[in-house]
Design a protein around this nucleic acid. Structure first.
Length: 742
DNA sequence: AGCACGCCGACT
DNA sequence: GTCGGCGTGCTC
């Protein structure tokens, strides 16, 4: 008898695959792409069968324990894509495959099943029985009547809720043969609420630039084959409309579409726009704010081929679409496309690779393209499509910089609004228009310090000042989340009442509410909108005009379209300007441009005030001038001289551990090993203490590898494989194409 | 990742 | 004398 041997990648950070016997019971049922449970060492782990071999060199093979989710099988394309991700980002294939699944299906766990109840006999009989038992068992009668009225099976808990009966009434209905219980996989529709008001929309007429962009994409779709586009469109130029029309073409031809959005932009409003723009299309949404059951349900719909369009965040790039015809990556410059834990992939770059492997077009859209994408367009790798004017009748807003002075630091927040901005806000309120105030910091005060001895309250586990939150009267660390009571006295010198300096949105909202008592003020940030529902409610009430001034973090800048905002005020554009990160200027330019774009989407031309202590900074000057090209050229020149991206590739090697001396020592030996392995054209920078020198109780040191040639970088990493392995005392992570240097 | 093997310090 | 610290290596 020929015993089959399967090749399996396991969910562990090991590069190799392993051989397993296929037990007779599974012979013929397990195939390439199937998930399996296998004994690995002394425990069981999940893995994926990636093929079969005739015979194995390994003498003692263990058998596959079990076939997991036989109905969910990775297709050839996803296997190929994940293998590329694993090799490029230095993760194991098994880990990447695991990351391609919805969280509820990882580690071999089963989907949550729910019990549904349906009538087991004709409705008339149920009603007759209900009448018969009415006296003795009113609850049972209610259950029978309820079931008689249902056309389909109903969730058990819904039956109990609707009839106000207890479980034993239902049990008796089942025992008596009147009802039947079945286990099903629940698939709640997370957007059922929005689906109800799917009003028909007015088809906008395309601008010349939109038509041209759509024409180019449409041509690529008709021609077939891989094409990548960089759609550079200013806010309000109508990028979404271009996506929608291109997607219609794909869907009309029987193909499927995939739209990636940054998590923060994936709002109900955004999803609604796609649903309205593609009437009749089945849309699935993948995103972390959904419950585990919702997410798995959506994923299953996709996997069964029931979704024509998938809208999702980063991990949706692995969505199992079998007839994918077009990928759209909106806001392609967003750093959240990079996963900050293993596997550390960049969803935009994976999307381009996916399109290349499938031979389909991919569209990367942004108002402020990343310099990487801009350089790719300049090099001819991406076709550049530009939409530099708004599609609405209104011009881009008037943006001005405003020099801040010492008043800004007044601890009560009364100086956050400069006199000029104050004047504009009052004018706006008189005109009945809305105001958006942006400050990219949560909380009330960004640090608590003692006026006598200079003590600053820092997190005990992180090298970071704690933020004071007034509503909770707590100090919080925004890096590790730890909270402690706000000290009433200086812990060092006993001086009472530490000063609450630095402003976050909580202080800003309070100061603004105080200054404009007649205005209705609301706050939108992660603290104020903890849940999906809360976020939805605040956005909706601002949209309906029930709020005059909305104060918020990035959350207000992304994914919403507020037509009645006439004025946007950036309280300070400086929060990220001087971070020790090669992209700090780029990030600031993007953020200011993005926020400014929220103004004047309605009837009047918008006004934007950007307050800063550094009005001469080029990132701000180009941002207020709306001069992307100018910014890009200047920034590219400096990147070129330093060999930084997009001119060079980087790999960040981060070492972390609780014992600083050990981390430092290990950083030194690691950097030396890299140095030895270096070939021409590869540079080792560091080691040095990371800008965030300690987080969650762990000291951080890092080294960077830099080269124009990514293959050379890879060879260096391969040569140092041994030295890049972590130990118990020092954890080592390798981040290919890091998005943050902190 | 886990888990066992194996070699050096302070404790019943 | 051992218990247990963690560096090292392996998992079909």
């Amino acid at each position: 008898m020929v015993c089959q041997i399967a090749e399996v990648t396991v969910n562990a950070p090991v590069a190799r695959s392993f051989h397993y016997l296929v037990p007779d019971a599974l012979a013929g049922t397990v195939g390439r792409g199937h998930r399996v449970l296998v004994p690995f060492g002394r425990r069981l782990t999940t893995g994926v069968c990636v093929g079969f071999v005739e015979k194995s060199e390994f003498p003692e093979l263990k058998p596959i324990q079990r076939l997991l989710h036989p109905d969910c099988r990775f297709d050839e394309h996803i296997l190929e894509l994940t293998r590329w991700v694993a090799s490029y980002y230095r993760a194991s294939w098994g880990e990447v495959l695991e990351a391609a699944l919805p969280p509820a299906l990882r580690r071999g766990s089963e989907e949550r099943r729910s019990v549904v109840v349906r009538a087991a006999r004709p409705a008339a009989e149920l009603v007759a029985e209900a009448e018969r038992v009415e006296r003795r068992s009113p609850a049972l009668a209610r259950v029978l009547r309820f079931l008689a009225a249902q056309e389909t099976a109903v969730l058990r808990r819904e039956v109990l809720e609707a009839t106000d009966a207890r479980a034993d009434a239902l049990r008796r209905a089942v025992a008596g043969g009147w009802a039947r219980e079945e286990e099903v996989l629940e698939r709640p529709d997370p957007y059922a609420e929005e689906a109800r008001d799917l009003a028909a929309r007015v088809e906008p007429e395309l601008t010349e630039a939109q038509a041209a962009a759509l024409g180019a994409i449409g041509e690529a779709l008709s021609a077939g084959g891989f094409r990548s586009f960089l759609l550079h469109g200013v806010t309000g130029s109508g990028k979404t409309e271009v996506y929608l029309r291109a997607l219609r073409q794909v869907l009309a031809g029987g193909g499927q579409g995939l739209v990636l959005l940054p998590e923060i932009a994936l709002t109900p409003q955004t999803v609604l726009r796609f649903r309205q723009g593609l009437p009749g299309a089945s849309v699935a949404v993948l995103h972390s704010m959904l419950s585990a059951a919702e997410r798995t349900g959506q994923w299953r719909e996709i996997q069964e081929g029931k979704a024509q369009l998938v809208i999702g965040a980063r991990s949706a790039v692995f969505a199992p679409l079998a007839a994918l015809g077009l990928i759209v990556v909106d806001e392609e410059h967003e750093p959240s496309y990079k996963q900050e834990s293993s596997p550390r992939y960049h969803a935009r770059d994976v999307a381009v690779m996916r399109a290349r492997m499938l031979g389909i077009p991919v569209v990367l859209g942004s108002a402020t393209p990343s310099l990487e994408s801009d350089a790719n367009a300049s090099a001819g790798k991406y076709a550049r499509l530009e939409m530099l004017r708004r599609a609405t009748p209104h011009d881009l807003p008037v943006v001005s910089l405003l020099q801040l002075d010492q008043d800004f630091y007044r601890p009560d927040g009364s100086g956050l609004i400069s006199p000029q901005l104050d004047e504009l806000i009052r004018r706006e309120l008189r005109a009945g228009e809305q105001v958006l105030i942006f400050l990219n910091r949560r909380g009330f005060a960004t640090f608590l310090h003692c006026l006598r001895c200079g003590f600053v309250l820092k997190c005990s586990d992180c090298d970071v000042a704690m933020t004071y939150h007034r509503r909770e009267d707590l100090a919080r660390c925004h890096y590790c989340g730890v909270a402690r009571a706000a000290p009433q006295r200086c812990p060092d010198c006993e001086m009472p009442g530490p000063r609450r300096s630095g402003a976050g949105t909580e202080k800003a909202a309070e100061a603004i509410a105080k200054r404009y008592p007649e205005a209705r003020v609301a706050r939108l940030d992660r603290d104020a909108a903890r849940t999906h529902q809360a976020l939805r409610a605040t956005v909706a009430s601002f949209g309906r005009g029930e709020v005059d001034i909305l104060v918020g973090t990035q959350m207000v800048a992304k994914g919403h379209d507020f037509p009645r905002v006439g004025l946007v005020g950036v309280l300070t554009a400086d929060t990220g300007l001087h971070l020790p990160d090669l992209r700090s200027a780029e990030r600031t330019f993007q953020l200011v441009t993005q926020v400014a774009g929220r103004a004047g989407r309605g009837k009047r031309r918008g006004r934007v005030i950007v307050q800063t202590f550094f009005p001469e900074h080029y990132a701000l000057r180009f941002a207020v001038a709306g001069d992307y090209r100018g910014f890009a050229e200047k920034e590219l020149a400096s990147r070129r001289s330093l060999g930084y991206p997009p001119f060079g590739r980087l790999v960040k090697v981060l070492l972390q551990g609780e014992d600083e001396a050990k981390v430092k020592e290990r950083a030194k030996t690691t950097a030396e090993a890299l140095q030895r392995g270096v070939e021409a054209g590869v540079q080792v920078l560091g080691p040095a203490a990371s800008p965030l020198a300690r987080l969650k109780g762990r000291y951080r040191y890092q080294a960077l590898l830099k080269s124009r040639d990514s293959a050379a970088l890879r060879r260096v990493l391969d040569a140092c494989e041994k030295e890049l392995r972590g130990t118990k005392a020092v954890d080592v992570t390798v981040d290919v194409d890091p998005q943050s240097m902190l």
